[in-house]
């Protein structure tokens, strides 16, 4: 009986320590963030209008617009469109502008529309401004004097302006096509949708290469960086990390909220939001998990036998112990 009491005490203090240093400490160091927003609400409240515009758009005109505006820098390999080799495109642009064959299914249509209208705005500015505002609100609540609050507002305004005018603009090499007008941009999106393979038919690796590999390599799966490594770091502020071990260092849920909106975790980062749909992003994270932690299934398959073996072992050992203790009257 005393052994059971001691065991309970032991489990209690071990559990208390574990709770403090794992769940509790990690909760404090990495406060939970809002869930990923796959409807990109911060870009405006006209999603339904844009969607109906795209639904009724003219695909043939869209194709003409794509051929005259996009194919100088982007390949569309599924349609046989490639004006320059990938290597030449990298040499000309510093990195490989993504192939557009499946842009219509990988990227959310509303995001794609807004991105074509104003690339820096959709990829950076809108979300940066939103999170900066949230930050200002918490800082203002902690500020003690009116002066301090005014100073905070000024500093934030300056930061937002600096980010919009200099940083975000330098992060994005793609020009905006707002001058074409909303209708033509909708036609372009409709054309992309008409040629794209559905996400279900694409592998996580294909999607990751299209969405991520122009800045990130995946060494452990031999996915090379589609960029000039020399110019990438100065262009983005720091060298984008390899993705091979991301699942171990960041974990599943962080990767989801981060890919969906990098500014949510790293305010001011040079990583753009690329606007993947929920399904496409799930495939990317799944792929990163497969590359970084391929033994998930083997772990439980083998692990259960180890645990079972030692349970049976313990059971027999208990019998032996009882037998021996009876012998000496303990």
């Amino acid at each position: 009986m005393r052994d059971i009491k001691i065991l309970i005490v032991l489990i209690f203090f071990t559990g208390l320590t574990y709770y403090g240093i794992e769940p509790y400490a990690h909760h404090i160091m990495h406060p939970p963030v809002e869930e990923a927003d796959y409807s990109f609400k911060d870009l405006g409240d006209d999603r339904s209008q844009v969607e109906s515009m795209i639904a009724s758009a003219d695909v043939a005109t869209g194709e003409q617009q794509v051929l005259s505006n996009c194919t100088a820098c982007h390949s569309i390999k599924s349609q046989g469109q490639q004006m320059m080799s990938d290597a030449d495109l990298i040499a000309a642009n510093g990195l490989l502008p993504p192939d557009l064959s499946n842009a219509g299914s990988l990227y959310d249509e509303y995001f794609l529309f807004k991105f074509l209208m104003d690339p820096a705005g959709a990829a950076f500015n809108s979300t940066y401004e939103m999170h900066k505002k949230e930050q200002l609100a918490t800082e203002k609540a902690e500020a003690s004097s009116e002066d301090e609050k005014r100073a905070l507002v000024n500093a934030h305004q300056k930061a937002v302006e600096g980010f919009k005018n200099k940083k975000a603009a330098s992060f994005i090499k793609m020009p905006g096509y707002g001058w074409l007008g909303e209708e033509e941009v909708a036609n372009i999106v409709a054309y992309f949708q008409s040629i794209a393979k559905p996400v279900e038919e694409l592998s996580g690796k294909e999607i990751t290469i299209n969405a991520c590999a122009r800045c990130h390599s995946v060494d452990y799966d031999k996915v090379a960086l589609q960029a000039d490594a020399e110019t990438l770091a100065p262009y983005l502020g720091s060298f984008p990390p390899d993705l091979s071990q991301m699942i171990r260092s960041k974990g599943n849920s962080y990767l989801h909220t981060f890919i969906n909106d990098p500014q949510k975790h790293l305010l001011g980062t040079g990583m753009p939001r690329v606007g993947l749909t929920k399904e496409a992003e799930a495939k990317v994270v799944n792929y990163i998990e497969k590359v970084g932690d391929p033994n998930i299934e083997a772990r439980s398959a083998i692990g259960q036998y180890f645990v079972l073996f030692f349970l049976i072992f313990t059971f027999f050992a208990l019998g032996w112990k009882k037998n021996e203790f009876k012998e000496v009257g303990k």
Partner: peptide
């Protein structure tokens, strides 16, 4: 054999816990 019998039992229980941690 008496004390070793106790040891092996406690060790078995501990290793069950250990391998649970190792794999899961």
């Amino acid at each position: 054999p008496t004390f070793v019998a106790e040891d092996v039992f406690v060790l078995g229980a501990f290793l069950t816990f250990f391998f649970y941690l190792t794999f899961f």
